[in-house]
Structures are given as C-alpha cells and as structure tokens.
Design a protein around this nucleic acid. Structure first.
Lengths: 208, 208
DNA sequence: CGGCATCCGTGACGATACTG
DNA sequence: CAGTATCGTCACGGATGCCG
C-alpha cells in the first residue's frame, strides 16, 4: 500500500483533492451512489479503467473511509463495495461538477459510453421534496431516493418498494436535461416527460 | 499540445473531470480566484508543482477557456493569467470540495504550506450579503468580494477601495473556522474575531 | 466466473538545469 | 522573469495469468 500522495497544503479543498483527486476516484463514487456494487459491475460500468487501477482505488477508498467491503451471504457469495456516510457526503461535489460540466457536455460523441443511471444526478438536482421516483428510459430503468438521508441515493432497475412517482422520457429529452438546455418543469409541461403517481412528489411535478 | 484525455462518458460530471480533473488544475483555479497572477506568483504559491507542469496546465486551461493570458502594460511588462467567467464558475466546485475537506483538514502538519488567501474560501462560504470585506491575519491581509458577479472573488492585500467591513482574527481562530469546528457567528460573538465597519455587512456580522 | 496480481509499454509527473 | 529541455520515476492503460 503506497502512502497517500499529498499536496501538503493547509487548505480543505487541497485536502479533499488529496483523497478524491486521483483519476477515476470520483467516478467510482458516482457508481457507488447507486448502492452496493461488485468489482465486476464497477469494471463494466467504467469503461477504460484498468483492472489494477480499479483494485487500487477501491483499496485506497476503503483506507480513506469512503467505502466498505462486505461479503454477500450465500448463494450470491461475492464481495460488494459500498459507500460510507463520508463517501456519500461527496454527492455535493459531484453535483457541483455535474452542474459546471453541463456546459461541456454537448452532443453525444460516438466514443461516449452511456449508462442509464448516469442521468440520475441531473434529475436529482432538478427534483425537490422527498420520496422515491422511478425513471423509465429506453436504455433502462432506475430509481431515485429524493432527499435521502442514509443509504443509496439512486439505484438501477425499478424501485425496490412502492414509488411515489414515475417518470417516462425518451433519450433526447434525457440528454437535453443533462445539458441543462431543458428544465424539468418545461419537459413535464410540454409532455416530453410523462408523470404518473399519486403522492405529493408526483403532484408537485405536474402542477409546475 | 497534447489532445485532451477524456473519460469518454456521456455524463456532465465526467466531462467536467476531463477538463479540471488533472492534478493541480483546480488549485490553479483557486489561486486565480484571487485575481490576475504572474507565472512566478503561481509557482511560488503552489509549492511542489514543477515548472513544466505549471506551464502545461496554463496552456491547457487557456485552450479550454478557463483562463486568458494578458500582457501587462509597461513598465510592469509581464504576462498575467486570469480566469474567464467560465473559470470563475468553478467556485461552487471548489466550495463543495472545501466543505467536504473540512473533515480531512485536522491539525496543521509541519510539512503543510499555508497562504493567507487560502482562508478566503471558508470565510466566503460563511458570509452572506454583498460587499467588500477586508481580513487581517498575522500571516497577511486579503480581501473578499462577497456576492461578486464578475471579476476577482478575493485578492491579496487590503481592499483596493473602501471596505464595507474589516475582520481581524488570529491563526488559531482561522484554522478552527477552516476545519468547520467554529462557526463565524460564534467566533464574532465570543470576540475571537474583531469586526469593524459601518455597512450592513458589518452590522449583520455583529448582530448574530 | 469473479476478483484481483503481474507484467509491460506509454505517458504524466517532479526535480534540476538551462535559455531568451 | 517566464518559461523550455532533459531526465528519472511513477502512475496509468491493456493484456494476461492465477486462484478461490
């Protein structure tokens, strides 16, 4: 285990970069915000990361208190990596980066990878209130825990329990939202997003 | 000029990291938030950065629209680097990192460098309203443009014009604020920070 | 098959020296 | 003062192999 490289500056932003400034680290956090993940899942959803770098980052992140490693009970006996509260507290950092990066996103390039749950961050930024929102895209479904305290912030697939609202939208709408060109309220109003559900979350989405 | 390395992911956070994810880039932004700086100033305030990496980052940042290079008029004929609006828009990213990093800061290590203006970010996070605040530390003075639209967000030395409020505090108070252990309001109330000035900013600071 | 460890080529980084 | 040149080292990315 290599000792952590540091900028050696008495500045909290520099200290944060000591921990999360290495290549891939924040993207691993983004993946783990979706809940516990196995090594292979992470490797599959982070195209380009090499096996040794991924293993090394996961060790560093565990050492630094961002993640824990847990063994799943049989028969699915495998290790999963999971964010700690400290790791989940990086959500505002990813949100700030994501908001700034809207201007850099542009059109989708042929070389770009896409995963459905990568749209969770921009949607979460646009949502207020509290509850579970299920999102249906062509590429796949995922769900959001809006205003979540502990536990996963979003997750792949449909909501594990009952959803307070369901959103259905197409790829073009999704990408326009991600680029910041389209506001969620406008997308709902113009029918580019279909909202179903009876809770206050669904109601507040429709009444805008 | 090397082509930019990219994660090739259709995700705005990943795109942001394509631009500002390299080592030193965000710390250079932090320095330039203090206003235009010469190469030598940057090199002096970023101990550990090598000359070629600094030069390379400044070129990349100019290519990516984060900075501009400008020649000062004689007799101070020298180049200065300056943030664009796009570069200044990274302030929320540095603030999110800084807030998260409070927990990582701990006590000052003997190997840690310190610059007075590095305390500008935590102070700015704690201040509300609009105006110019002059801050006096033992290590040096700097000033903050609270709620600034364009132009520098803070700067070294006393305020160029009239300050709306002046704060005087010692190193221990400064570090406690940076670690998030002490709230600005508490520091003012207990007299660990001396506030002078007549504007609404000074008044709101005192009345908490 | 999932979860790494090892090896290797390339490129990024850090320190020093040097130049217009 | 503001970089460029050089060089050793380390981090990264890709491929492969091992081991439960």
């Amino acid at each position: 285990m290599s000792p952590r490289r540091s900028y050696d500056q008495y500045c909290s932003a520099a200290r944060a970069l000591d921990v999360v400034g290495d290549r891939w680290t924040l993207l691993i956090v983004r993946e783990l915000l979706a809940g516990p993940r196995r090594y292979t899942d992470l490797h599959a959803d982070l195209p380009g990361v090499s096996t040794d770098v991924l293993a090394s980052r996961l060790k560093d992140m565990e050492r630094d208190g961002l993640t824990t490693r847990r063994r799943l009970p049989p028969p699915a006996a495998a290790y999963v990596y999971e964010l700690t509260d400290r790791g989940r507290a990086l959500l505002p950092v990813l949100q700030a980066l994501g908001k700034w990066g809207e201007g850099e996103l542009g059109a989708r390039r042929p070389t770009d990878a896409v995963r459905a749950h990568w749209f969770a961050l921009p949607l979460l930024r646009a949502l207020e209130g509290e509850g579970v929102v299920e999102v249906h895209l062509e590429e796949g479904d995922f769900h959001l825990h809006v205003g979540a305290g502990g536990g996963p912030v979003y997750g792949d697939g449909p909501a594990p329990g009952d959803a307070d609202a369901r959103l259905a939208l197409d790829a073009a709408t999704c990408e326009a939202l991600a680029r910041g060109e389209l506001l969620l309220a406008d997308a709902v109003r113009t029918g580019r997003i279909t909202v179903t559900g009876e809770g206050t979350l669904a109601a507040s989405l429709r009444e805008q």
